[in-house]
Design a protein around this nucleic acid. Structure first.
Lengths: 253, 253
DNA sequence: CGATTTATTGAATCGACTCAATTGATGTGG
DNA sequence: CCACATCAATTGAGTCGATTCAATAAATCG
């Protein structure tokens, strides 16, 4: 599908044959889910790899006593976990935020890719490495950043990822997460998320209302979140150093 | 080297040819570092993949103002990041705790593996997926677990990983981390780490003195840390196969 | 439209932090 | 091998960021 190819092309030049393969894989076995539903549950045997075609989802883990941590967000074009099926069981669950469409990618698809599509292999490695970097950055946020920084940082990450996927319109975007979701993602309480968002609003860093987020000045939000975009590794081929200093119009893709 | 092969064999059966290749790669270009030294720095162009032959190291990120987060520990047999060199620059640093020996694995090595050693490819994917799972678990810890749970959890993880590498002796092991390291890894202050360790000691969950850790009762420590080992994916099919190789003191250097 | 979820506000509390000082290890050079 | 310096661990006291509890207001939905 468009946003996956677009994303992967950021990194590796895909041949027409590569693209045909990806297109076929992403239209072959498609499933649809409603909002607030589990796609995958901890303990299950992973059968396929999931490609998000549309909608938002998250990866989460839960403790016996109910404490829940969202450990990642999935946006359109994201692949849940390249090659997970080599593991015996899932160590986490995946749930939807909005209605979601996914394509199931089979083991056979990956075997085929491995056998004859080196560019896609490289692109998948890149996706994997970036996801790992994002996860590290979350660790950093939860360990070191204050509530305000953490929230600002998360919003920057989502914003840049949405923008790279072509899902922002000017300085605004759809934003279906509730404050409860943000709480589970940032490790804060719902109440404190509310207060933190108010602080960001008061500083003119965001406008968040209904299910729309507006970022009037990405630079300032990045500063507030001590956000350094290097970990997203959106800067390959011709892109210059210092993507941080480059304002919004340096859209990716 | 022994502990890498041992680890990978846990997951995939490696052929003699596979093993020769790995052995050659891990004795080919070896470097030695002192304790408390950086092996890799944020911003550098990743040139090789590093395999830890001996010693402890960590991956860390740092903010402008000095706040530092350790995001992962490396123990003997660990590979820093399969395939990192496809990224333009490092988004984090790697530093040593003790003296460390590493082998540098080149791009050519990985190309060779990809071309003719499917078992190693699978094993590397497994390593990658497990590392990702560990990172998620850290996110969970930092976001949801209390100081005590967090510390207990971290100690469990390190313990199991050391044990899998054959680096525990009965119920004790070498433990070169300072309370400052533990603070940077758990997102707690040094003072609070100290108090948390005392609490664990008082509960008889650990004995930590000098640079030695004793875990008298792993079960209880796991309970204290709400530790579920599933995320380490140590339970796979391949393990049954080699009943011959028993976990004794297989040399690590 | 009532029902339910989501967002907001206030007040009291607590876990973890900072500051600051002391003790205990470890290490090094004379 | 001691003396000194340094780094790591411990303890106490006061503070603060974020939490919990609790209630109300505003959206959203069937």
């Amino acid at each position: 599908m468009a946003s996956l190819i677009r994303k992967l092309e950021q990194f590796a030049r895909l041949s027409p044959v590569d693209q045909v393969l990806l297109n076929r894989a992403s239209t072959d076995r498609v499933r649809h889910f409603g909002p607030r539903v589990d796609i995958v549950r901890e303990g299950e045997k992973p059968k396929d790899v999931h490609l998000i075609l549309s909608g938002w989802a998250y990866r989460y883990k839960q403790l016996e006593d109910g404490r829940r941590q969202i450990v990642a967000f999935f946006l359109p074009g994201d692949i849940c976990d390249v090659n997970v099926f080599i593991l015996r069981e899932m160590d986490h669950s995946i749930g939807t935020v909005t209605a979601v469409s996914i394509a199931d990618l089979s083991r056979e698809f990956f075997d085929k890719v491995a056998a004859g599509h080196p560019r896609i292999v490289t692109a998948f490695w890149w996706e994997t490495l970036v996801n790992a970097a994002i996860q590290r950055e979350w660790t950093m946020s939860l360990g070191q950043r204050t509530a305000l920084e953490r929230m600002a940082h998360l919003l920057c990450e989502i914003w840049l990822r949405l923008r790279a996927a072509g899902l922002t319109q000017g300085d605004s975007c759809d934003f279906p997460l509730t404050q409860g979701d943000l709480a589970d993602a940032t490790g804060l309480s719902k109440v404190h998320v509310n207060r933190t968002l108010q602080e960001l609003r008061a500083g003119g860093l965001i406008v968040l209302k209904g299910k729309t987020l507006v970022v009037p000045n990405l630079e300032r939000l990045m500063q507030a979140g001590l956000f350094n975009p290097n970990y997203l590794h959106m800067d390959h081929e011709g892109r210059q150093l210092d993507a941080a200093a480059t304002p919004t119009d340096a859209a990716v893709g």
